[in-house]
């Protein structure tokens, strides 16, 4: 399927028009993913810096166990969701593919990138309108969501496989090669931790950019990821 370039001026982005952008699986994934990342960030932080010591018998307590369980359960949701989302990039509409194949070879795309940067630097007075992601958003998504998720999934399952020990599927698939690649287990922990903070930074910027664009770019952002439709305003 040909990837279209949508820039301002195209009939589709005319004021008052509404286009269907995000199909149901994409929207569902977005919100499940948001929830999973929230759980992962909080539980992950608590695994590295646990809550105050619990009183009583060890056998009466399982706090770390539950926190780690929540982390691992959310991690499975996150990873399976990512795989499902990657599948949808193949079978869904062309907007679903943006996250996985940014149009890096497209001059027009880079021109749009420049325009967006100027817009964010308060130099350009008007942003262009896009049906899907603008190039800057697209690149951020690709680097932080797509590659970032892969990084977190690979390092995460490598750490998970340590507990599973030799023979565990995650140990066989990830731990055996990820640990030597980074040096040792502690290094993988540190990188996974940094990756988590990167995700937090992404969420901050992502939420801000979505709200800001919704207000200032004359097109719906938040509504689009809820009902799938993007409406352009004048």
């Amino acid at each position: 399927m040909a990837v279209q370039v949508e820039v301002s001026g195209a009939a589709q982005t005319a004021a008052g028009r509404t286009v269907f952008v995000y199909e149901a699986p994409v929207r569902l994934w977005h919100w499940i993913n948001a929830l999973a990342i929230s759980v992962l960030a909080v539980t992950g932080y608590l695994i590295a810096s646990p809550l105050p010591s619990q009183p009583g018998e060890a056998s009466d307590n399982f706090l770390m166990g539950y926190i780690r369980f929540a982390h691992f359960a959310a991690a499975y949701v996150f990873a399976i969701g990512f795989v499902a989302r990657a599948y949808w990039a193949l079978v869904g509409n062309h907007h679903a593919r943006e996250l996985f194949v940014p149009r890096l070879a497209d001059r027009e795309w880079w021109a749009g990138m420049r325009q967006e940067l100027l817009w964010y630097a308060f130099i350009a007075r008007q942003p262009r309108k896009y049906q899907g992601h603008n190039p800057l958003a697209n690149l951020m998504m690709f680097l932080m969501v797509t590659l970032g998720s892969v990084f977190m999934i690979v390092t995460g399952f490598a750490l998970y496989g340590e507990g599973g020990q030799a023979g565990h599927w995650a140990n066989v698939l990830f731990t055996t090669w990820v640990l030597p690649l980074f040096g040792q287990s502690q290094d993988v922990h540190t990188w996974h931790h940094l990756g988590a903070w990167m995700m937090v930074v992404f969420v901050i910027v992502h939420v801000y950019a979505a709200i800001r664009e919704d207000i200032m770019s004359r097109q719906t952002m938040i509504g689009a990821i809820i009902n799938g439709e993007r409406t352009f305003r004048s």
């Binding site: 307590n61 399982f62 770390m64």
Partner: peptide, 15 residues
């Protein structure tokens, strides 16, 4: 994996 203090870890009981 074989530490005898592991139940305290899982229970969230720390020094």
């Amino acid at each position: 994996d074989k530490c005898y203090r592991r139940p305290h870890f899982d229970g969230g009981q720390f020094v």
